[in-house]
Amino acid sequence: MKVDKRYDKIDLKDIDNIDSKVLFKILKETKDPKIREVLIERYLYIAEILAKKYTNRGIEYDDIYQVACVGLIYAIDRFDIDKGFEFSSFATPTIIGEIKKYFRDKGWTIKVPRRIQELSKKINNAKVTLSQKLQRSPTVADIAKYLNCTEEEVLEAMEASKVYTPQSLDLTYDSNNDDKDVNLADLIGEEDIYFNKIENNDFLLRGMKKLNEMEKKILIDRYFNRRTQVAIAKDLNISQMTVSRVEKRVIEKLRKEMEKSLN
């Protein structure tokens, strides 16, 4: 693989430990499929978080997750690291857009044979798999070969899938939660609280790379496991005062990391 001279000192054998921003820069220069695959796997959690947000709304989670993964792949392929945006901020609206489009396009207007409906679903899943494998959008021939069917069958299913029912925004989905239904309007144009959750996740992942093992343990025990300084000190066989000093040092490091991300 040819790598720009600015990155010739980077050891790609240790790719899992390379910062994502650096990987995006190398991907832009080289279009290396291995780097693309690593970035997809590294950010699958975004697709998972957003897919879970849309569960219990009339469509199976696995289907929503597949659509979210397609959106993630689109985002990675379109992302330009040189524009200065965080990837999570760029990817989230792209993924949400794909999910909402899937909800809008879910209903069939006419009675379509079950065979066609099932093939249509397989085609959508095949597009996700083949996009990663081929590093491009799959052709009808690619999909037909992958599903072991004819190109005519693929085209028939793809044409049939374009026939959708226009749905009222007052249409409700069973939420399976205290008998409270969800309007279709609730799925479209709502203010998304998951931006902050994803950005906070990215911030913590970056910040924890700057911490040593003791600092990581104290941070996790204090703010995620809700343990007292005394209990942590006993586990680590150190004084409570030492735990307090380390905790303050961790907070200062995270504060500096936040200031750096805002600049």
Rank of each mutant, 00 (worst) to 15 (best):
P93K: 14
S89L: 13
T94A: 11
D62V: 15
R104V: 11
Q66S: 15
Q66W: 09
D82Q: 13
E86Y: 15
F90V: 04
D77G: 10
L72S: 04
Y61P: 03
T92G: 03
A68P: 03
V67C: 01
K101V: 00
S89K: 14
R57E: 01
R57M: 11
R104N: 05
A68T: 01
D77C: 11
Y65P: 00
I99W: 09
C69E: 05
F103C: 00
T92M: 14
F90T: 01
A91N: 04
R57H: 07
D63Q: 10
Y74N: 09
R104M: 13
C69T: 14
Y61A: 07
D63P: 00
K52R: 13
V67H: 02
S88P: 00
I76Q: 08
I95D: 02
G84L: 02
I95E: 05
D77W: 05
E86L: 14
R78M: 06
A75L: 05
I59G: 01
K101R: 12
I64N: 05
Y74T: 06
E98P: 00
K52M: 12
I96R: 15
Q66I: 12
E98Y: 11
V70D: 04
A68D: 04
S89V: 11
I59D: 01
Y74H: 15
R57N: 10
K101D: 02
Y102L: 01
D63Y: 08
E60T: 03
K100S: 04
C69R: 14
I64W: 05
T55C: 13
N56S: 11
I96C: 06
S88V: 09
A68G: 01
D77L: 13
G84Y: 12
F103T: 00
I95L: 06
Y74S: 06
D82A: 09
K52F: 04
D80A: 08
F90Y: 15
K101A: 05
D63K: 13
I73M: 14
R78W: 07
I96W: 10
R57A: 08
R57K: 15
Y74E: 08
K52H: 10
I76P: 02
K53F: 13
T92K: 14
V70S: 01
R104H: 03
S89Y: 14
A51I: 03
T94V: 15
T55E: 15
K53Y: 12
G58L: 08
R57T: 04
I81A: 07
I64H: 04
Y65A: 10
T92E: 10
V70W: 09
D80W: 03
Y102V: 00
A91H: 11
D82S: 13
D62I: 11
D63V: 07
N56C: 03
Y74M: 12
S89D: 13
C69Y: 12
K83I: 00
E98C: 08
Q66L: 12
D80E: 05
I73H: 10
Y102H: 12
E86D: 07
